[in-house]
Amino acid sequence: MEALLRKEIPSIPEPEVREEMLVCKDLRKVYPTPKGDYVVLDDLQLKIHQGEFVSIIGHSGCGKSTLLTMIAGLNEISGGKIFVDKDPVREAGPDRAVVFQSPSLLPWLTALQNVMIGVRQVFPTASKAEKIEICKYYLDKVGLGNDFDKKATSLSQGMQQRVGIARAFALKPKVLLLDEPFGMLDSLTRGELQDVLLEIWQKEKITAVAITHDVDESIFLADRVIMMTSGPYARIGDELTIPYPRPRNRKDVLEHPDYYDYRAYLLDFLNH
C-alpha cells in the first residue's frame, strides 16, 4: 500500500511547476458558544493547483462545509488567510462559484433565467443575445437543452441540481466549490450527475473543490482526495493522489486494479 502511494505518476505534472490557485494558510475557525469558544478548524494548511480537481472527505460535522463556505466568502474567517489566485478572500464573489447541496434555484424564475442572473453579473458588457447564448450553452451541456423555459419548481431535484451546475460553470469562476452537491439525490441520479459534472469540467478545466462524504464519489471525481480529521480542531489528516487518466469512465475506474486499495485506504482513515 505504501509503495503504491509513492508511485511515480507520469500523467500528472509535478505539482511544484503548476500555479497555486487556492491556498489556505494557518486557517482557523472559532464559533463562540456560551460555554466558551468551539474551535472547528485549527492550523489548517491547504494548497490547490490551477486546474486541479480536489475532493475533501471527512466525517459529518468535521468542519469540511465550514471550510468550503469560508473559501466561498460566506463564512467569516477567524484566523489565518485564504488566497484565491494570490488575492486574499474577503467576501463572496462570482470568481468562486458555489454549487450548494440543495439546488438553491430561485423558484420564481425559469432554468434559463436562473443561469442568466449570474451571467448578467459576470458579463455585463455582452449583448443580450450573447448572454442567452452562454446560458443555453451551459444548460445544453448539463442535458437541459429542452427545458430552458421550465420554471425551476417544475424540475425534479436532479434537474434542478443540473441547473445549479450550469449556473456555476457559466460564471467562468477561478474556483468551483461544490458543497456535497449530490448529497440529496438518489444513487442513480447521483451517478448521472457525476458524469455530467466531469464531462463539463473536462472542457473547462476549472480548479474545483468538492466536499463529499462518499468515498467512491471522492475517488471518481478527484485528482487528489484530502482527508480531514474529525473536529474539534480539525485539520488535514492525510491526502491521496488518484492518478487515473482523464477523461474518466466509471467502468474503467471501478475495474482498475488499484481502485479497491485506494478505497480501503480512505475507509481506513475514516474509521480511525
Binding site: A72, G73, L74, A92, R96, I117, Q121, L171
Partner: peptide, 11 residues
C-alpha cells in the same frame, strides 16, 4: 440559500 446565491453573484 437565496441570500447566499445573491452574495456569490455579488448582486
Amino acid at each position: 440559500d437565496y441570500i447566499n446565491v445573491a452574495k456569490v453573484l455579488k448582486l
